[in-house]
Simulated assay, not measured.
Amino acid sequence: MAGLRVRSILVTGANRGIGLGLVQHLLELPEPPQWVFAGCRDPKGQRAQELQNLASKHPNLVIVPLEVADPDSIKAAAARVGEQLGGSGLNLLINNAGMLINNTLENETLENMTQVYTTNTIGPLLLGQAFLPLLKKAAQGSPGSGLSCSKAAIINISSIGGSIKEAYFWDLANNLSYRCSKAALNMLTKCQSLGYREHGILCVALHPGWVQTDMGSSAGRTPPLTVEASVQGMLKVLSCLSEKDTGTFLDWEGKVVPW
Rank of each mutant, 00 (worst) to 15 (best):
V6N: 12
P30S: 02
Q49S: 14
L22W: 06
V23Q: 11
K44M: 00
L22G: 07
R5A: 15
A48Y: 11
L4K: 06
Q49L: 15
K57W: 00
G19L: 10
R7W: 01
K44C: 00
P33T: 03
R7L: 01
V64M: 03
N60C: 08
L66F: 07
N15I: 04
A55N: 04
A2Q: 14
R41Y: 05
R47L: 12
V62R: 14
E50V: 04
L10Q: 08
P59A: 11
L26D: 11
I9M: 12
P59M: 03
L4A: 09
T12I: 11
R41F: 03
L10S: 12
Q24V: 02
D70P: 10
V36F: 02
V6K: 11
V68C: 12
Q24F: 00
N60G: 01
V64W: 07
K44R: 13
I63W: 04
S56K: 15
L29P: 09
R41E: 06
G45P: 11
A2F: 00
E28L: 15
H58A: 13
V36M: 01
V11I: 15
K44F: 00
P32Y: 01
G19P: 13
V6D: 09
A38W: 12
V64D: 10
G17D: 12
L4P: 10
N15C: 10
L54P: 05
F37G: 09
Q49W: 10
I63Q: 04
G45Y: 05
G21S: 11
P32F: 00
D70N: 15
A14D: 13
A2T: 14
L22R: 03
L51H: 09
N53A: 15
G21I: 04
G13H: 05
F37L: 09
S8P: 13
V36D: 04
G39Y: 13
I9H: 03
P59K: 14
R7F: 01
